[in-house]
Design a protein around this nucleic acid. Structure first.
Lengths: 208, 208, 208, 208
DNA sequence: GATGAATGAGGATTCATTCAT
DNA sequence: AATGAATGAATCCTCATTCAT
């Protein structure tokens, strides 16, 4: 009795993913009920199970899809600076990371807050991808430390610190706010490369 | 079967707060059940309600207590550098923030992940305190921008960026790990003040 | 384990209403648990919520349905005596009221005992219907007072008194008892129209 | 540490009874919690159990006390009309009943609505007293039927009808309302003795 | 006599999920 | 693919009652 376009199944499945992402972002995985989800999508509760097998499966799917696309887009972004210095590669990484995270704030927030909602096996899978991403940055920092183009004492710690800072923008960035993405990106890049300390003459003399 | 001691009431209430903090940290507020909490404390489920009025009230109490103690301890820490330059005051802030957050990782994690579990009124109260804390940093950055001791384009953005980075250590710091608190603190302070870019002669020349 | 039929939904909903009415009659609204109700219906506890939204909603539904049907049936019953004297209209009202209340004793008892279990808004709605019913009687008594066919000092008070008396039969009438509905109705009508006082000659003389 | 007047125990017990009566009247026995009761009295929850053994025991105590005092006051009220006609004795009963019920509306309401909250043994005890009261009225009606001073077909049914009507005043009487107790009493007595039917000339002729 | 703390049982309601239609 | 009905387990919280202090 109910007729839909040929790909209505895919459309519904997509709607479920989108609604799931939105609701998990707003309320957290544990606080989102399948009823909430069904209502947001506009279908009956039990219909959801024609498209996903489990609430947990939906979360896993969302997180894996995010991590895979993050990694998939990182490689070409870094490739452009392939022969260049670690410093340039770091710049490329930063630009990519910030652009990507500012654009997909919701996914980023979710993955950072819902790791603990994952069952062990699923957690391992997601964490592996996340580590792969971090390792790209660690590798750059190690190279920079080696070639002297970057001042890095502990690449792992620095990588964590940078990712924490850069990912934090998702928590407050508002696309309708007073600052453009480019402005925000520039500020962060400057901060990371140059720090806050002003190299004033007198201070340089004192130090000397 | 019933155990009682002089101030058993206070002791139980404390145990509930401690257990609540721990469980919320591990599983998230929404995923912690009052049964879990009772079992962790080692009392009957209904006994919990002799000490807290509501699950939500427990969360609020934990978060407010944390924010209040954070602010209370910040003031004296900053007071020591009262007459000094903005740069010195920033250093004092960074040292305090890192030390405090490395010491109370659990509370910090909880407050950063459970704001969305707060009912509107409670959220407003907690957020107000959090803003007061951030504003201390913003004020320092503004002063540094004004007196030229710090390179800051947008104090608000920089404050967010710094807090994101500094708070991120809670996510990975392990007191039994290979790095001491002091080492971690030093790395972060260096990164914030000086950035990663190495001021090598050849680069300066190139740039010039 | 799962039973289903064409319109099993409606059937279950009806069964819930019937069981609810019966249990509330027997034990009182506050003393009926949803477990009791589910057991009486013969379904799982949580299944009830596929048919009603709330325990309170069930009560409201029962009471409103009763009041609406009472009013709906009153109008045609009165219509037959439309052009007649107030005395005749009163008789029609009494006959209708007694017949109806003797037939639906359970609903009548419930509505008289559970008004205080209603939340304010629901109470207002039910009370409005109840007042509409009372007003029909008040209007008849007023007309009778006006045309002199009835001795009525205060129509409102008399209406309350009559309804109290007539509704009281629900508390003791037993369809298997020694008295038929008709006998009971006759006694009440006689009492209301003529009172208990015997018009003995000597007394009439004394009064004269 | 806590000192009270000598009879503070009795005072508290009384306060509990009063508060219990009030709350049961307002919300119904099942809906009143011991917490409610303690709060109304202004003492700690567990302190209640120094004065009553059980929630049910409180209800029984209230109801028995009411019935006993009702019966105790009825006897002298009837004694005054001891040698007189059944009609006069009925009048005495009506006056007593109305006066008493108008004065102790709360107790009357409670006993009429909470019989079903009584455990079987307690119910039997209360019902026995209630029957004794009703039997006084039945006896008067029987006497009136025998001596011809009252028109009564079935004394039992008439007794129920009268008590229902007379007790109903508790549901709407308001001591601050427009009608005095005396006015209300007169109306009811007139209604019971004379009925509503007006003895108009033409009707008398028709009847003759 | 008063009470703070404890408790097992039970309160209404929601949970994720299944399955026949 | 969609769904209404069903369900056992779990949700937060309140219940009347007890008892050591």
């Amino acid at each position: 009795m109910v007729k839909r376009a040929a790909n209505s199944g895919e459309r519904t499945a997509d709607a479920i993913r989108r609604a799931g992402l939105k609701l998990i972002y707003q309320k957290g995985y544990a606080a989102v009920s399948m009823r909430d989800l069904a209502q947001e999508v506009g279908i009956g509760l039990s219909s959801i199970y024609n498209h996903i097998s489990t609430k947990q499966a939906l979360l896993v799917e969302l997180l894996l899809e995010h991590m895979n696309s993050l990694l998939a887009e990182l490689r070409p972004a870094l490739a452009e600076s392939d022969g260049l210095s670690a410093r340039d590669r770091l710049l490329a990484f930063l630009l990519f990371h910030l652009r990507y995270h500012l654009t997909r704030r919701v996914e980023v927030f979710v993955i950072n807050s819902e790791l603990r909602s994952l069952e062990p096996d699923n957690l391992a899978e997601v964490v592996a991808l996340r580590r792969a991403y971090e390792d790209e940055l660690v590798a750059i920092l190690q190279a920079g430390k080696a070639d002297g183009s970057l001042i890095v004492e502990d690449p792992q710690v620095t990588a964590f610190a940078l990712i924490s800072m850069l990912t934090g923008v998702c928590n407050w960035y508002n696309p309708d706010g007073r600052l453009s993405q480019n402005a925000i990106i520039k500020m962060h890049v400057d901060l990371i490369f140059s720090g806050l300390s002003a190299p004033l003459p007198e201070r340089q003399l004192k130090a000397g």
